[in-house]
């Protein structure tokens, strides 16, 4: 351990504010990078599941209506 006490570790020889600010920025950007894919994955799983549920609905009840669903999200 380079520092003698915990208080010294926090103070960083007077540069504590800057050092911890930089590491806080790292933590925030790390958290965003970890959260964003998780949220995206949940969203994707939902749309894909919806797609397949609709697919099953269409195959069990054929020609319920001739028109396509109003908000069909099938890809082009």
């Amino acid at each position: 351990m380079y520092f003698d006490s915990f208080a010294e570790f926090i103070a960083m020889g007077g540069h504590g504010l800057y050092v911890w600010m930089a590491y806080a920025a790292f933590l925030i950007i790390l958290c965003w990078n970890l959260m964003a894919p998780k949220l995206r994955r949940r969203q994707v799983l939902e749309t894909v599941a919806r797609h397949w549920r609709r697919q099953e609905l269409n195959s069990t009840k054929p020609n319920l209506e001739a028109e396509p669903l109003p908000f069909s999200d099938q890809d082009s």
């Binding site: 020889g13 540069h15 050092v19």
Partner: peptide, 24 residues
């Protein structure tokens, strides 16, 4: 992080602010 923050020695010119190096 632990090594860089707590165990590495400080820079003789920049002191402990050098520890930002390990992220920057």
């Amino acid at each position: 992080l632990v090594w860089g923050l707590a165990f590495a020695p400080e820079d003789f010119k920049q002191g402990n602010s050098f520890r930002i190096f390990y992220i920057h």
